[in-house]
């Protein structure tokens, strides 16, 4: 790996100005699980890495009203095992357990995973249905964006060259919401990820949140499929029901699947239909409420 220098700021402001002053020669470093592999292989090269873990308190996981706030340097393992997350975001804990392998989870961070914007991310897909928000800091202050506004392409985000993600704010699902996540594939990275969260009131789908990831460069919500499910009676949402089939069909249409090592477009679209149905049914089967 090409030599680089390490900058260890102690405040977010310091990190932001170091980033701003580097003219693109610096990158933020948290877990490094993706970044360092790219640097080892020569795909990326930086003069300086800015270690966000040197900023005190950025690894905290805390509650803020209905939301759980996950600091930028909290690892996947820390999130998975955090008592607050397990209690109030059990599906996030479950999905974090499935990320890569134990060693990656022990080092890699949730925020880093989102910012690296590798297309095959489970959390990036799941957080869409949690309607998570991101705290973004820059030299001129901070702003809050929806998680869905972060990734703009393969390895590309909307963050400015002098901005950093400081926290991921994940609201717990409203009571009565049932949720499930499915991933599929045999490669090291998932071929497909689907998240479904359905609010059920009096036997009717009051709200539906569906997200799809990995089959295309950017994870996305599937609003047309959500619209189809909203207002439907859940006892009518059975395997092969016309409504569910329509939601699955629209999901595959909206997938924008790309052909790659994980499969051809038609296969991926087919998988979207299969797993959309399975995930919705699995979510609905969790009739105890909550997202567990």
């Amino acid at each position: 790996m090409r030599p680089f220098r390490l900058h260890e700021p102690t405040t977010v402001q310091e990190a932001a100005s170091a980033l701003a002053g580097s003219g693109g020669g610096a990158a933020l470093y948290a877990g490094g699980t993706e970044l360092l592999l790219a640097m080892k292989s020569g795909l990326l090269a930086y003069d300086t890495l800015i270690n966000v873990k040197s900023i005190p308190g950025l690894d905290a996981v805390s509650a803020d009203g209905d939301s759980i706030v996950i600091g930028a340097s909290a690892t996947h393992s820390a999130v998975e095992h955090d008592p607050l997350v397990r209690e109030r975001l059990p599906l996030l804990s479950e999905v974090e357990h499935g990320v890569a392998n134990l060693r990656v989870r022990n080092v890699g961070t949730l925020a880093g995973n989102l910012c690296f914007a590798e297309p095959h991310s489970d959390p990036a897909t799941l957080l869409l249905v949690y309607e998570a928000e991101l705290d973004v800091a820059g030299p001129s202050g901070s702003r809050r964006i929806a998680v869905g506004d972060l990734q703009t392409g393969s390895y590309e985000t909307s963050l400015g060259p002098d901005e950093l993600l400081t926290a991921v704010r994940v609201p717990a699902f409203p009571s009565g919401m049932r949720a499930a996540y499915s991933k599929f594939g045999y490669h090291h990275r998932p071929t497909l990820g689907i998240a479904a969260a359905l609010a059920v009131q009096d036997g009717v789908v009051a709200d539906a949140r569906l997200a799809l990831g990995c089959v295309s460069p950017v994870a996305r919500r599937l609003s047309r499929s959500e619209d189809v499910l909203r207002g439907e009676r859940i006892d009518a949402l059975t395997e092969d029901s016309a409504v569910l089939r329509e939601a699955c069909r629209l999901a595959s249409e909206d997938a924008d699947a790309v052909e790659d090592m994980h499969g051809g477009v038609d296969y991926k679209e087919h998988l979207v239909r299969v797993f959309m149905e399975r995930t919705v049914l699995r979510a609905l089967a969790r009739n105890g409420g909550g997202d567990g």
């Binding site: 360092l36 592999l37 393992s77 134990l102 060693r103 022990n106």
Partner: peptide, 20 residues
């Protein structure tokens, strides 16, 4: 970080020493 041959324990937790 796929194979684990370089695994060491850092504060008791397995990490990939090839990349950390």
């Amino acid at each position: 970080q796929v194979c684990g041959a370089c695994t060491v324990l850092l504060d008791g937790a397995p990490v990939s020493s090839c990349t950390v």
